[in-house]
């Protein structure tokens, strides 16, 4: 595995504000403010928490208080949603500085962003918008990732998108594009298995073929989420990456297969809308943890056999 994507827990040095918490092989959940009392009641959880960076870019107040309390006892993954890495315009320096400040302050175990764009000119669209895959966009995205990684002083994990349209101008496959981005920038990858399933359904290709072409050796985290069902102009199924329900059975099967191939990976259950009570979200993470643990045993046995 590439050194840059082998994430070590930040050492608890004299300069660290928080203890190091290992994240290897753990399932986690999105951290939602309304769950804080229930989480604190239960005490330290087994898993990790992922937060959207932008929600913690205010100066102070309850968000920072909550994240500080969560970070003290758990590994935290910092997930940027608005860097607009996939956009044609330069990275917003002010936003990047805020992002770096969060990385410095909370010492997250994982840091990730999206292969997408969300700002054009001065308008922020609050959605992960798609880009064509060409040599030109490849160069631009690689430049943007370099800039982010230099600014924060560590590699990021880049997440594969869920998409609904294609760009006829594209000259590369998404997996080819992502593979080349990782090679050029040294970034790791966040494999969103739900996005693979959603995009594969929407564009009529096999999710297994996508995974076969995906550089699994660069993956540092997995995302799983629920999706919604609509139809396209022809009346065929169109899946929406809605993050508003449980993970579908088909996605669990794909996930099992992915973990079987790349070994236990930090795995996040994303749930951002119609948010359930904490025990429901925790149970979803426990389901992922069970799959991780089952494969962890296999991987340990293989390691023992290999060392003989």
């Amino acid at each position: 595995m590439n050194d840059l994507v082998t994430y070590r827990a930040t050492p608890a040095s004299a300069t660290s504000r928080f203890p190091a918490h290992p994240i290897a092989g753990l399932a986690g959940t999105s951290f939602k403010h309304e769950h804080l009392p229930a989480i604190l009641d239960e005490g330290k959880q087994e898993g990790f928490f992922e937060v959207h960076a932008e929600n913690y870019m205010g100066a102070g107040g309850p968000p920072h208080d909550a994240l500080t309390r969560i970070r003290r006892d758990h590994p935290v993954s910092l997930h940027g949603v608005c860097m607009s890495i996939g956009g044609p315009q330069p990275i917003d320096k002010t936003h990047l500085a805020r992002f770096k400040a969060l990385v410095d302050r909370y010492e997250p175990t994982l840091v990730s962003e999206h292969l997408a764009w969300s700002t054009h000119d001065t308008t922020f669209f609050n959605d992960l918008l798609p880009l064509p895959y060409t040599q030109a966009t490849l160069a631009r995205v690689a430049d943007h990732i370099d800039e982010v990684q230099v600014a924060i002083g560590r590699p990021i994990l880049l997440e594969n998108p869920s998409t609904y349209v294609v760009f006829p101008e594209s000259t590369m496959s998404e997996t080819g594009f992502i593979r080349e981005i990782a090679r050029r920038t040294g970034c790791g990858l966040l494999l969103d298995v739900s996005n693979v399933f959603v995009s594969a359904t929407n564009h009529g290709y096999s999710p297994l073929a996508y995974l076969a072409a995906f550089p699994l050796d660069q993956v540092g985290e997995i995302h799983l989420a629920g999706h919604a069902r609509q139809t396209d102009d022809e009346g065929d199924l169109l899946l929406i990456d809605s993050h508003d329900g449980p993970v579908a059975d088909a996605v669990w099967k794909l996930y099992d297969l992915v973990i079987g191939r790349c070994g236990p990976m930090p795995t996040l259950i994303e749930w951002d809308s119609d948010i359930p009570d904490w025990p429901v979200l925790r149970a979803e993470a426990a389901a992922a943890q069970a799959i991780l643990d089952r494969h962890a045993r296999t991987f340990t046995q293989e390691k023992i056999r290999a060392s003989r």
């Binding site: 349209v165 006829p168 396209d232 102009d233 929406i240």
Partner: peptide, 21 residues
């Protein structure tokens, strides 16, 4: 600039982004 896959239309597909935004 956008299309559906395999010659499909992109109206409802693009509308997903419109609706999301």
């Amino acid at each position: 600039a956008v299309a559906g896959p395999h010659g499909k239309a992109a109206t409802k597909r693009y509308n997903v982004y419109r609706n999301n935004v």
